[in-house]
Write a protein that binds this DNA or RNA. Structure first.
Lengths: 204, 204
DNA sequence: GTCTATACACCGATAGAC
DNA sequence: GTCTATCGGTGTATAGAC
């Protein structure tokens, strides 16, 4: 299974630099522009070095994607443990910088079998995690729990947020203000700010 | 501006076949797999014929995209004129077959300047159209019109629907049932079925 | 650890034969 | 209207020099 040629170590600065370069190329030029040459160029190295650290381009891509999903997993976990989980998840999913990369990987999943199976497995795992940790919502708004389940609400908000974020990165803004207004209203209803208001003008 | 070499007519069966092939390749293998060779192969022709009908690959791609946006525009217009516009828009946006192609074009916009400007212009135009035609919602649920604007509601639903559709095409289903439950509840509240119920068991 | 050299397939695009 | 032939550039991947 393993390749015959000489390979570099699993832990290496250059290896990390190459993975960083994959993300940079994905963000700026999309997955279609991704190649050993484009990645190495971005890292300031000759393209053959890619094959010293990674068996194939798919290997590099999958490694990069796994680092990415790990980051998302950790951020989601942190958001679920924060004071207002839904607010935190909304903020994270609608961030334009991250949304662009996420959508690129999602689109890539559509025709790369390795990335697709990883996306499916990761997506299901992430949602199970959310469903477990957020098994009960603060029923502040008196919502029907048969309709408004924690996973349904969380997913609705993060799906909306992620496209809004991507569109912002792209340069589309029509209807965003109105959509955010609705989302933020829902967030306020579901997670009212219970913290005592900070006296204005007294910040250090 | 125009190219020097001999070019085919604007109206031609082969031209249409090539545009159909672009959509097929985009759907099945993604925009990264799109090339004159892959498109022609799909159409059962030699790849050089592409450059007889289209000046460049970008020209072919943009032409295909414009046919696509035109279709979406017409469907949206039809949905807005239907008995329950929001229900119709939800159904259209969450269709997996269409959602996959749409997302592919959106992702492509991220790194192809021509497609990007087309996407931005089309997105804004579509939303203006929705905002104009749907300037008032049936205020059945007693919602605050300062929060729940027609464009905000429509966009929220179509954003959710389009990713659900794409994920379905991809093979992810976690949380979908719960999310659809919420969306459909909202749709029922906003657009209750006023048509007299059909007697069951009497269908032709 | 990174480089040069090399292999072969595919890319967009053009010119000209039929 | 569609084909063959051809171009330089880029794609993944390997072998071996330094």
């Amino acid at each position: 299974m393993a390749v015959k040629r000489r390979m570099g170590p699993e832990i290496s600065g250059t290896r990390t630099v190459l993975i960083d370069a994959v993300e940079a190329v994905m963000r700026e030029d999309g997955y279609g522009a991704l190649s050993a040459r484009s990645v190495a160029r971005r890292a300031g190295l000759k393209y053959q070095i890619v094959f010293y650290y990674f068996e194939t381009m798919d290997d590099l891509l999958l490694t990069s994607y796994r680092r990415r999903t790990q980051t998302v997993l950790e951020r989601t976990e942190a958001a679920l443990h924060s004071r207002r989980p839904l607010h935190a998840i909304w903020a994270a999913s609608s961030d334009p910088f991250d949304a662009a990369l996420s959508l690129e990987y999602i689109a890539l999943s559509n025709h790369n079998p390795l990335i697709r199976s990883e996306t499916i497995a990761f997506g299901e795992r992430l949602r199970r995690m959310v469903a477990d940790k957020l098994s009960r919502l603060p029923a502040t708004a008196g919502l029907d729990p048969g309709i408004f389940t924690p996973i349904g609400i969380t997913l609705s908000l993060s799906l909306m947020g992620s496209i809004l974020g991507f569109e912002t990165a792209l340069g589309i803004s029509g209807g965003h203000r109105e959509t955010k207004t609705i989302a933020e209203w829902c967030l306020r209803q579901l997670e009212p700010d219970t913290r005592p208001a900070t006296a204005k003008g007294r910040q250090a």
